[in-house]
Structures are given as C-alpha cells and as structure tokens.
C-alpha cells in the first residue's frame, strides 16, 4: 500500500501543482466579469463615503436597477454590490454587511433559488474565490465544497481565455464583462442591445430547500442593524412566466420569511414583470425594465431614509 500511496501522491502533487499555477499564477481575462467584486468592495469599504443605499443580491439586481435614477430620486448615494446569484447570499452578506454603517440602508433582493441550494454558493463562488482567495476566511464547509467541486469550470474559463488570445479571434460581445458596469455597479452595457431568447425556470426541487438560509439571514440582519444600518428585504424581479412556474417555491419562501420574522417589503408579484422587459434570462432586465423596477423601489426605500 505504501508504494501505491507514494506513487499516487506524486501524481496528485503534480496535478495539484499544475492546476494551482493555472488557477493562481496565470493571469486571466483583465475584463473578467467577476473583477467587479474588488470595485464594489472598495466602494462600500470607503471610510469617507456618505450614507448609502447598498444593494445586495444576485444578477437580478446587477441587471435590474438603474442606480443613477435611484440616486436622483432618493438624493442618496447608491452602491450596487451584486454580481451573480451563484456567489451565494452568504458570501455576499459576509463581505458587504461588515462595512455597513449607521445611516446606511441595506437592500437585500435575493433570488428565489437562494434557499434552494444557492445561498452557500455555486460555480460563481469558485470563480470569485480564485480571483480573491481572501474570501475563504469566512467560508463554511459547504462553500468550500462548492469551490472545490467547481475547479474544472474555473480551469476551463482560463483555457478558453488563452485559446482566445492564441487564436486572436474576436469573441462575441457579452454583457458579462468588467467594462459593462457603470460607476455604481449596475450592468448597463446591454441597454442598447436587443433582447435575446431565454428559457424560463422549472420549479425548484423542494428537497433542496434549506431553512438554514433564513436562520443565517435573520442573524446577519440583526448583526448589521446593531451597527445602526437598516436592512430591508425586497422581492427579486422575475419574468412573469417564470414567476408563475415557481409559484409553489415563491410561496414557501414567503412563508418561511414570516416564520423567521423577516419582513418582505411588498408582495412578490409586484416584481413579476412582463417577459418582454427581460434581456437574456428571467432575472435580467433591459433598460425599460430596470427603470420600472427602480421607480417601484423608490417609495419602499424612501420610507427608511432618515428614520
């Protein structure tokens, strides 16, 4: 057995070493979507910033608000920290809530699938971790599992980038790039692009539902509010067709919010928009949709300013 273990370990070490070089040393795409994380963290972390409305959520927020319009309406700075739902609410809240301060309004807009297995991260968390390994400090075991199980996807992403460089081919334009964000952290580069076809969601598997997520939300909100910030929960924006399919899931999410004394600021259907307002997924809005949602958010957030 010793001989086998030695040989197996040699192979494993070579494979891990080569993978680590690819993951940590080889430079990736300088316009990578997930590089926006750093900017968003800097914006929230800035000790000199004014009180702000800080949005935390997945890409339903990234592609779903017009923060400049919101700033104008609220006369308050807006920071959109969202990037991708697959990062998981836990990693997002662990990072951004710690910089919330007295007078801030933290707006949580978690996607419906967060309690169905996404809240501790998916592939996106792995991609983010290999760009910002410091995040690992606050990971739980499930987040580590998700990071490691998605290593092949991160390797593939690097491979695709180098293939692109070697072949000198222009890839198709994509909204998923660092350069697609505006100064507040919204994706706006797709606003002048035509809507693309997308598939609607099928109901999520109820077996994946975890109340631990609500428990986590509850304690994190309490912690943040102890610092003097106000935390509110708003429903995510979603295309009407998907909303109809997810009825049972949505109902369960709403009921569990109530069970944990978490208040959703308005009924979920308020943010179920006609499919025509979506850009490329049931959670992503185009310009018209983003403006509509922003205007619906104004009165909800206004209630808490200077309270």
């Amino acid at each position: 057995m010793k001989k086998f273990l030695i040989k197996f370990s040699i192979l494993a070490i070579v494979i891990i070493a080569v993978s680590s070089v690819i993951l940590f040393v080889l430079k990736g795409n300088p316009d990578a979507y997930f590089l926006a994380w750093e900017k968003k963290v800097d914006a929230v972390k800035n000790p000199d910033r004014d009180n702000a409305v800080i949005f935390i959520g997945g890409s339903n927020v990234t592609f779903g608000i017009n923060s400049l319009l919101l700033e104008d309406s609220l006369k308050m700075q807006v920071i959109n920290t969202s990037i991708h739902a697959g990062i998981g609410m836990k990693a997002m809240m662990d990072e951004f809530c710690k910089y919330a301060k007295q007078g801030d309004i933290v707006v949580l807009a978690p996607e419906y699938h967060q309690p169905y297995g996404s809240w501790d991260g998916e592939e996106a968390l792995s991609q983010l971790f290999f760009l910002y390994p410091y995040l690992g400090k606050s990971f739980n075991i499930l987040q580590w599992k998700n990071v490691f199980s998605n290593i092949p996807s991160v390797l593939t992403l690097k491979k695709d980038y180098y293939k692109h460089i070697l072949l000198h081919k222009n890839t198709k334009w994509s909204a998923y790039a660092l350069s697609s964000f505006n100064k507040n952290g919204d994706i706006v580069a797709h606003w002048d692009k035509p809507k693309t076809d997308f598939r609607h969601y099928k109901p999520f598997n109820e077996d994946d539902f975890s109340e631990k997520y609500f428990n986590y939300l509850s304690s994190k909100i309490k912690q943040t509010e102890e610092k003097g910030a106000k935390v509110i929960i708003v429903p995510p924006v979603i295309a009407k067709t998907s909303f109809a399919t997810l009825q049972e899931n949505v109902k369960r999410v709403e009921e569990t919010y109530k069970k944990y004394n978490l208040k959703q600021e308005c009924p979920s259907e308020v943010f179920a928009f006609p499919d025509s307002l979506n850009y490329n997924t049931p959670y992503h809005l185009g310009k018209q949709g983003a403006d509509k949602r922003t205007l619906l958010l104004v009165p909800i957030i206004k209630k808490y300013i200077n309270k």
Binding site: L11, V14, I15, V18, S19, N150, I151, P152, S153, L155, T156, K159
Partner: peptide, 14 residues
C-alpha cells in the same frame, strides 16, 4: 495519466 486528468478537467462537462 496526467494528460488524461487534465483533458478531463479542461474538456469535460460538469
């Protein structure tokens, strides 16, 4: 072995 492992890692569907 190493080539096959990396082929699977890079070209596999997960």
């Amino acid at each position: 072995y190493i080539a096959l492992v990396f082929y699977i890692l890079l070209y596999g569907v997960y």
